[in-house]
Computed example of a mutant assay.
Amino acid sequence: MPKTGMEPIRRKALTDAAIEAIGARGSMDVTMSDIAGRAGVSPALAHHYFGSKEQLITASVRALLSDLRADTVEALRKARTNRARVSAIIAVSFSEEQFSDDVVGAWLAFYVIAQRAPDIRRLLSIYSRRLHSNLMSGLTPLAGAHDAERIAEGAAAMIDGLYIRKALGTGPARHDAVALVEDHIETQLLEIRGRTL
């Protein structure tokens, strides 16, 4: 008989194991057995909970997005100014958990599979819209809607680019990645202030 209350724990273990396995491999070239072994459960149980590897991968993307959203909400709750909101979003994007080798590798593998998996593509589009919206919430009062749009697009592109460089082993350390994006934001805001003087 299955233990009561174990399903959410095992589901979480399986999504964590999928992210770890995909991130370590850098591709979707993993099996349910690989993932189940990392999670400490049988492949049959993994299939019972998720049905297929594709469903487990979709659940894993959702889990990553859920964690990122929770971290972002908490960071924004603590931000006291619009500029602090922007910094909080950048810091969360490069947090120790989000910018770990396995998570970065998994993100990139998910982007690759999104080209032929509509559910994954939709979830990654949600991430992109959320990042943009969160950046705009802090930037618009500081720069106006038009300039905020441009700055937010640049910051999002830098974040994505730094993830790619990290996956290739050529990217900067976490703190340096934060500094690069912060420098982009601050340079753009200084330029706007200069135009209004």
Score class of each variant (00 low, 15 high):
Arg122Pro: 09
Ile113Arg: 03
Arg121Cys: 13
Ile113Ser: 12
Leu123Asp: 05
Ala155Glu: 07
Pro141Arg: 01
Leu135Val: 03
Glu96Trp: 09
Asn134His: 15
Ile159Cys: 06
Leu142Val: 00
Gly105Asp: 03
Ala106Gln: 08
Arg116His: 01
Glu149His: 09
Gln98Thr: 02
Ser125Asn: 15
Arg129Ala: 12
Leu139Arg: 13
Ser95Asp: 05
Glu153Asn: 12
Met158Arg: 15
Trp107Lys: 14
Arg116Glu: 04
Leu124Asn: 10
Asp147Trp: 06
Ser128Tyr: 08
Ser137Lys: 09
Lys166Asn: 00
Ala106Ile: 03
Leu168Ala: 01
Arg122Glu: 04
Glu149Phe: 13
His132Gln: 13
Asn134Gln: 13
Ile151His: 11
Ile126Cys: 08
Val103Leu: 09
Ala117Asp: 15
Tyr127Leu: 07
Arg129Lys: 15
Val103Tyr: 08
Arg122Cys: 06
Ser125Val: 11
Ile164Trp: 00
Asp160Ser: 06
Ser125Ile: 10
Pro141Ser: 13
Gly161Glu: 02
Leu162Glu: 02
Val112Gln: 03
Ala148Cys: 10
Leu131Tyr: 08
Trp107Ala: 09
Arg116Asp: 03
Val103Lys: 02
Gln98Phe: 00
Ser95Arg: 00
Phe110Ile: 07
Leu123Ser: 04
Val104Asn: 00
Arg150Asp: 07
Ser93Met: 04
Arg165Met: 11
Gly138Arg: 01
Thr140Met: 09
Glu97Gln: 02
Pro141Val: 12
Arg129Gly: 11
Gly169Cys: 02
Ser137Ala: 07
Val104Ile: 00
Leu142Phe: 06
Thr140Ile: 14
Ser95Gly: 03
Ile151Ala: 04
Leu131Trp: 04
Ala114Phe: 10
Ala167Met: 05
Tyr111Gln: 12
Asp147Met: 15
Ser128Gln: 13
Gly169Ile: 00
Trp107Asp: 05
Ala143Gln: 03
Asp101Gly: 12
Arg129Pro: 08
